[in-house]
Design a protein around this nucleic acid. Structure first.
Lengths: 346, 346
DNA sequence: TTGTACGCGTTATCAA
DNA sequence: TTGATAACGCGTACAA
């Protein structure tokens, strides 16, 4: 663990010269620069991060807050976490990961002690302490999500309210006036996952406004989901929905799709299917399903970019909200409505 | 961002007194201690991490190295990562996550700059650069895995060689002399995932020694796996294996189990099934399958404990190897062999 | 173009 | 029991 003094001694220059070779903040003669470079190489010198930071420079570390609950949607967690980590890395930042459930305390600690230069919040609840108490953090904070209280942090998310409207309108325009809704994991609503609630409320409101009859599934526990029962009682039930909106993951959706196929219900001829706020992997789908998907890449890129703006340009990002318009990915599972038992194609 | 001086001024004491109140390394009069505590509270003082570290104290940060490749077993990744993070957190350490594929450079940087006090390597290859070049790191390093070159880091893992032997012997003792083997993801062998290779080689060797005929599956691509074909050609094939050893994940295994059921093959009556080096979740299994599972909890606890020993007690852990004996979890899918078409229970 | 010296916030040593 | 001060390694204002 050689220090800058060792390098200076070996190169036969002063410590400040070595420092300036690294920072490039003043001109150095090529000869001197080369001597220093060789000494650095030879000693394997790496600047001491603590000293740099203490002196007031940037340390290029950000924290990602992702409280780990026992039951959580790990696949989804992963997509956002990995994407954020990748973006941070590409921007030259290291990532400190905070998994404690006492997230606010941890964030206070790592920002207050100057350990990190900023924070990104993942997996936000509708009412999220971490966002609501952002004024306690001494460093900028970006939430990937759209919690109710966000005066002191920036928020970036898909517009799930708009997504709810879109889902209703897309199907309405195709002539669907009776629509089944397959709820997401019940636990997720319970714990207050923000996007699920926003989508659900917007869907309720818009279907009502359009005069659509929305038939809701029972509570869904994906460990123990009876797809046949769902298909029998909802899709094949007395209300005769002509379309299905799904908010569950691909395992539950696949089971329903299989079950529909077994029941002789063809997609989209007999029933259109639209998945919303999901991230379906094509390879895992038993049938291609049209989707208004999550866009982790876009959100995480945006989040890191906002945070960098705050860190590197000292921009005040408190209260900034950036909502992306959701996009429909058409995979052919949507069609105009037609009465049942008509037979043939459109 | 108040400093120790601000606290000292407000409390009317010297900075060293404040410092000692925090460290508890010398006795402080209750009255003074209380004054300091109040000042700390009032100012929201948090010690500057960089300054502490610069002065020579511990900073209680470790790095977890987990190079993110495009194709990886995310579920498994998660189990180890989350468990390690949890253990570290419980031991009072923060975790810096290194996901770059240029892992060696990153580890050199974060150890050399004193940013972290130690490193844990996850997802090790059979021949792993990160372990082979551990002498380049200026801080202790623990691999959760058992790579070939490990002179300069500690290794902790399940004993996959023993696991291979166990699998062969368990089935041999039950009278199985013709055994099918369902390979894991081909990509994983290709990229050299250490444990899969060790297990596979040991299995080959032990079955050979015991005179067991091992019938291998074709290469497995779990995105595109034809379970019926596997069942037809292997389980129901001319060689008539009486047992199946699985190294694939639960999705592939489930497909095979279903396919066997459809083919009228009953587990374990017609065919015993043993899954090795997997982490099957009971809820996701279509039938309970006996297993010699991964033990992320045990390994990660051990890894953090070894690393702490190195950091906190300055123990030299280079070259230390700790291999756990694998354990069979019996879920009833193993039985004594009997000739086919015998009918009835044992 | 280069060197000297100060200060960042903390802790340990020494003195009171 | 408490206070003053040197030192950690680095970056930069200032001097040369």
């Amino acid at each position: 663990m050689p220090g800058i003094k060792d390098v200076a001694r070996l190169a036969g220059v002063s410590v400040s010269t070595v420092s300036y070779v690294f920072s490039g903040k003043r001109s150095i003669s090529p000869k001197t620069a080369e001597k220093v470079r060789q000494a650095v190489e030879k000693l394997g010198y790496i600047p001491n991060a603590s000293a740099q930071r203490l002196r007031g420079g940037h340390n290029r570390i950000i924290a990602i807050s992702e409280p780990i609950r026992d039951e959580m949607n790990q696949t989804q967690y992963n997509a956002y976490f990995l994407e954020t980590a990748k973006q941070a890395k590409d921007a030259g930042y290291d990532v400190l990961i905070l998994t404690s459930e006492e997230a606010v305390i941890d964030i206070q600690r790592v920002t207050g002690s100057n350990l990190v230069e900023g924070v990104i919040l993942l997996d936000l609840m509708h009412k999220d302490q971490r966002a609501a108490l952002a004024h306690l953090y001494s460093k900028p904070c970006v939430a990937i999500g759209y919690p109710t209280e966000h005066q002191d942090c920036a928020c970036i998310d898909l517009d799930f309210t708009k997504m709810g409207q879109m889902a209703a309108r897309i199907l309405y325009r195709l002539g669907h006036h009776t629509i089944a809704f397959l709820r997401g994991q019940e636990e997720d609503y319970q714990r207050g996952a923000g996007y699920m609630i926003l989508f659900y409320e917007a869907l309720l409101k818009e279907t009502k406004a359009l005069g659509i009859t929305l038939i809701e599934s029972e509570q869904v526990d994906h460990h123990n989901f009876d797809a046949d029962r769902f298909t029998r009682s909802i899709i094949n039930g007395p209300a005769h929905p002509t379309a299905l909106i799904n908010q569950s993951g691909s395992d539950v959706l696949n089971a329903v799709v299989d079950s529909m196929q077994n029941a002789g219900i063809s997609i989209p001829d007999d029933c259109s299917v639209l998945s919303c706020g999901t991230l379906l992997e094509k390879e895992f789908l038993h049938q291609p399903i049209s989707e208004i998907p999550f866009t982790p890449g876009k959100l995480c890129t945006g989040a890191v970019s906002i945070l960098r703006d705050a860190i590197e340009n000292k921009r005040d990002i408190r209260g900034v909200v950036r909502l992306f318009k959701p996009n429909l990915v058409d995979r052919g599972s949507l069609a105009n409505v037609r009465s049942r038992n008509e037979g043939g194609t459109i």
